[in-house]
Design a binder for these strands. Structure first.
Lengths: 132, 132
DNA sequence: ATAACAAACGTTATATTATAACACAATGTT
DNA sequence: AACATTGTGTTATAATATAACGTTTGTTAT
């Protein structure tokens, strides 16, 4: 019953910043940006980030230790994430491609391990950077 | 002409440890393990790790900040990596599946970005852990 | 309404992961 | 010989993340 998630104060503040951002944000850069709102400690950021990830509102880009808002499905808990990352400008795009997602969700390891979740990161140079 | 790579002293020491390990190793755990061999500083480890990655001898498991030896193709420069990770015992297995690799290497983003490289991490509970 | 519990908060301290910067040595190239 | 390239060793510090504690707020059940 797709219940509307109510966010706590800190969670909302952190989510707002990530959603407004044009690219991935790092935890400490979020922290510096919210100090005026009375959030002073890394713990407060990391706690909010953890919950937001659990809820599927944001994703962590593992190769960058940075966080982006979820733009694809209206934020189901994300068990299948894929991103396109520009190695020049650091831009990150969430890839939501049903075929890809189905293909990978159905992928089974020879050794009999059943997968619950995957994360895929593609790297390259984005169109914009290629022009320069 | 698949030239045999000659490793420097530190690179060889670090590679040996990673190859002997049963699971992924973290940089500082490598450091502690090689202090008897006269390596004292994180820089020395990270420098060796960087080169070994460039050479395709090892891979970084991004979600764990840890390193594993390359077991698949006899270590071409790795542009297409996939791993299966047990969330219980932390075991990591490199997946070398030609179909998967081809499928992903051929994948093209709508937005016209050409990918040079990808990294895929699957998560689940391995067979061994399921028994317990 | 209030007791009981869970979730979120604030804070201090600390652990873990990674890089900067500098000087020197070994090797290879021209 | 002069020069570039790669690797080394070292000290210092930056950046990322968690532990542990006590308090406050929000929910649910009676």
């Amino acid at each position: 019953m797709a219940q509307v998630q109510i966010l706590s104060r800190n969670q909302q503040i952190v989510l707002d910043i990530i959603e407004k951002a044009k690219g991935p944000l790092k935890a400490y850069s979020i922290l510096f940006n919210v100090q005026k709102k009375g959030i002073n400690a890394p713990q407060q950021i990391y706690r909010a980030l953890d919950k937001l990830i659990e809820m599927g509102k944001i994703h962590k880009i593992e190769s960058k230790n940075a966080f982006v808002a979820c733009r694809s499905s209206d934020c189901e808990i994300s068990k299948a994430t894929a991103f396109s990352i520009c190695e020049s400008c650091e831009m990150v795009d969430e890839i939501s491609d049903t075929k890809l997602s189905k293909y990978l969700s159905g992928f089974n390891h020879k050794k009999g391990m059943k997968f619950k979740r995957f994360n895929l990161e593609f790297f390259g140079i984005c169109k914009k950077c290629k022009k320069d």
